[in-house]
Design a protein around this nucleic acid. Sequence first.
RNA 1: GUGGGCGUAGCUCAGCUGGUUAGAGCACCUGGUUGUGGCCCAGGAGGCCGUGGGUUCAAGUCCCAUCGCUCACCCCA
Length: 418
Amino acid sequence: MKFRSIKGTYDVLPNVSNKWKNVESYIHQHLSRSGYSEIRTPIFENTDLFKRGVGEDSDVVSKEMYSWIDQGGTDLTLKPEYTASVVRSYIQNNLNSISPISKLYYIGDLFRRERPQKGRYRQFRQFGIEAIGSKYPEQDAEIISIAYNILSELGIQDITLNLNSIGSSETRKKYRQILIDFLKPNYDQLSESSKNRLDSNPLRILDTKNKSEMKLLEKAPMITEYLSNEDEIHFNEVQQYLNDLNIPFILDTNLVRGLDYYTRTTFEIVSSKLGAQDALCGGGRYDNLVQSLGGKPTPSVGFAAGFERILLAMDDENELVEKNIKKIYFIGLGNEVKSTMIKILGEIRNAGYYIEFDPLRRSIKSQLREANKLGASITIILGEKEMEEQCVQIKDLSSGNQESAPFDSIIPYLKSLK
RNA sequence: GUGGGCGUAGCUCAGCUGGUUAGAGCACCUGGUUGUGGCCCAGGAGGCCGUGGGUUCAAGUCCCAUCGCUCACCCCA
């Protein structure tokens, strides 16, 4: 086969597109009910936006972005994450002047050139929310609870909320040195990648999966011990509100996120139903991002969740099923009938019914089989006989009963069936 | 970028230690009388056995390479 979809991309085929649509519409509903408004930003941005926002040393920026120079010499990048783009728009459009708090959500496709595996694609879909403007812990708690509730209401079982605070940037600077001081004497026990990170980004060593490293880290000093007074008060309040909301969480002092902009609260929701890529959702507070992208200092919190992983983790039985709508199948027989058929079909469709016809000019037998396969409950049959009498046959497929109806009373007849 | 597993019909897979015209189930199409579905029955279509090379009298089967898929490392949603 000559052409196939690019590695790490996939087609959403008709048999699953409904599932996507249902999940998306549920998310739209839930988020607007919570007072969040949708924002859509372009699929590509200036490369520098992500370098500055996400961090030049992060893996995402340093080796996973789809970037190119366009014909005008501009360095562009397909969005590898949404937050930087939303914040750029927030600043550019002065959303702060409309309200001191902007509650935004998004649904869209992102691009990262990673090696594909279960739950990880090069073009993938995320939804997420950003609350820009509040520094208070109840905002953190709300964000976390929205994420948690959406996932559990979608019927995903075995979800766990992991929570941590990585403190303010000053706290982190202090802790960073303490961690380095702890790891240096154990340098030989570190993996290659951790050795490399020791200077560039030692905190990332904390969420290693390497068993011997994990053991070593059990004795490592925890970041939560070094939080400033204010960090700690904030963190305690977040936990208290989550308790008030009855949202179970696990404190995970090794939870350090990969994007550089996070401050204080970080969290992640994982599911055992996934493979190695078990994070359904991740997020946290980013109090410095707006400023570092050129806006006024504005505290913010948000999260992002991956659609592919949600669909993987969703119980098929808990699928949000579409209400059974009555389908009508129009059977036309013979050439003389076509133009009348098209006309009646249009009228019925305009009246709001679900109706389709056979564009292959197949036999009545085939058309009835097709109607049956599609799960139609009614067929309307129009052949030469009916043309002479200016009527159609309306057949109920479950009972097999069939009655004729004159052209001008088809819609009243259909209405009487309800 | 590194490693493991796997590539036979649209889908899920058989094909024993290399040996005749490559099979099944599901799906698809047609028919079971002249214009009536589901069930059933009969028939049909559909395969460069991923690709290229090698070993052999003989390769879907063995070897090498290559491409693709997949899982894991890594990273993250």
